[in-house]
């Protein structure tokens, strides 16, 4: 994948993200958001983060779109427009400052794949060299996620489960609660 393709995908991701914000019909907004996730997944794949791309495609473009769609049946299809100018100006200013700070911070990020960058110097070289020997697992990402950083994965799974319990308690039918 060339640099041009990356920029093209990035451009498409930004355009679809803007489209998802500006479109009035919520149904179209949900589908545009799915397209945004899909372009983002392609971008991750282009950067070599295949596991992240897989997750983004499956969860971002697939599952969350499904949740949004079924949630739309509980509400109306049209976005309610509120014309409060001061709030909008404040939001624009705040987001502008946030965007500037993020861009400002990204100047210090290392070049992708730079072996001399700080993240590459710490534990990752050990993982890359020893994970097959120590864990019998050719996919380094799986070895890191499930073994070296297994505690983080346990936490993530617990977070998802907690979200599930919360949704179940909020949304379950009341007549079902007796059983």
């Amino acid at each position: 994948m060339t640099l041009f393709d990356d920029y093209l995908l990035l451009l498409l991701a930004v355009v679809t993200a803007l489209g998802a914000v500006f479109v009035r019909d919520l149904f179209s907004g949900v589908l545009t958001l799915a397209a945004y996730s899909f372009f983002l997944a392609l971008l991750w794949a282009g950067l070599g983060a295949v596991d992240v791309a897989f997750t983004e495609a499956v969860v971002g473009a697939g599952l969350s779109t499904l949740f949004f769609l079924v949630a739309l049946y509980l509400t109306s299809h049209q976005e309610e427009v509120r014309k409060q100018l001061p709030v909008r100006i404040m939001a624009l200013g705040g987001l502008g400052i946030l965007g500037f700070l993020l861009l400002f911070g990204s100047v210090d990020l290392p070049v992708v794949g730079d072996p001399k960058s700080l993240p590459s110097k710490h534990v990752s070289s050990h993982y890359l060299r020893k994970s097959l020997e120590e864990t019998d697992t050719p996919n380094v990402v799986t070895a890191v996620l499930a073994d070296y950083r297994g505690f983080d994965t346990l936490g993530e799974t617990t977070v998802i489960f907690t979200a599930g319990i919360a949704c179940w308690m909020l949304l379950r039918r009341r007549d079902d609660s007796a059983t």
Binding site: L66, F67, V70, L74, A163, G164, C167, W168, L171, R173
Partner: peptide, 12 residues
Amino acid sequence: TAVSIYYSLRER
């Protein structure tokens, strides 16, 4: 969890 969330929303 995913099935539970979807089913709760749907049933609602």
